[in-house]
Amino acid sequence: MADFVLLAGNTWETVRFPLGGAVCLFGAILCVIGTIGVMRFPDFYTRLHAASITDTSGAFLVLAGMALMAPSWLVLVKLFCMLGFLVLTSATGSHALANAAHTAGLQPKIGPVGQAGHQDHEEGDH
């Protein structure tokens, strides 16, 4: 039994660095996907949705990958603080942005959008 625990510990020590790197890479790819959405979507409010991918799943996966590779428990505490701050601040920041745009009178496009990026008339440009 003790042998098994030792073996499991060793395997974990060898496997966690490639695993953490893979999780980091996957999170970074999700961030890029969110950015692609920011480039493609037709108006400000829809771009906000694409940016929130970066803020939630991308950031979470990158931080989780870093936590898998963490050298000490101090780093784990710091990563957890970062995750908490990111979750609280990104949602509040998104809401502040949307609320500011709405208060300033930027009208969202409502209804189905068929083809990409050809509707270039923008209203409420300040």
Binding site: Y45, L48, H49, A50, S52, I53, D55, T56, S57, V87, S90, A91, T92, S94, H95, A98, N99, H102
Partner: peptide, 9 residues
């Protein structure tokens, strides 16, 4: 707001 796809305005 945190859920992608919906934003409180």
């Amino acid at each position: 707001t945190l859920t992608p796809g919906t934003v409180t305005v």
